[in-house]
Amino acid sequence: MNHTHATALLDRYFAGTTTPAEEHDLKTYFRTADVPAELAPYASLFAYWEQQGAITAPPRKLTARPGLRRTLLAIAAALLLLLAVRGTYRWQQPGLTTFPVAERQAVDWSQHEITDEKEALRFLKTVLTTTSDKLNEGPGITVRELREVRDILD
């Protein structure tokens, strides 16, 4: 590109009518050619565009994502808590050698056998009454809870 062509292109460049190819030619001209004095100041402008194009983003900082960091902290805290609980528990337990272990003995059930007929009947009635009471407890709880649910729904 000669001086005349560059001057003409420069006028069109500032008028906003140059094509991308012509703008590329201008940039190349001001970067590489021996620019005459009257056009030399424009070289600064094209040098500025070049300089701006050479700017790169700073390297990314390798930081853990907040969610991941929270999860790792939670896991670490849970492990620490488990170790602390386990340590406390073991510390409170007596040593195996000092723990008083009862000796195993056979139970003589014949001593507890009921031989009297009236006593057996009384025992049986007691057992049946207790069983009946306990059996009614469950349905009672269920009926009460169902009533509460119905009240909530109403």
Binding site: F30, R31, A43, S44, A47, E50, Q51, G53, A54, I55
Partner: peptide, 9 residues
Amino acid sequence: QTSRTPHCL
């Protein structure tokens, strides 16, 4: 950033 200019003008 001026030291990063890619040309030799």
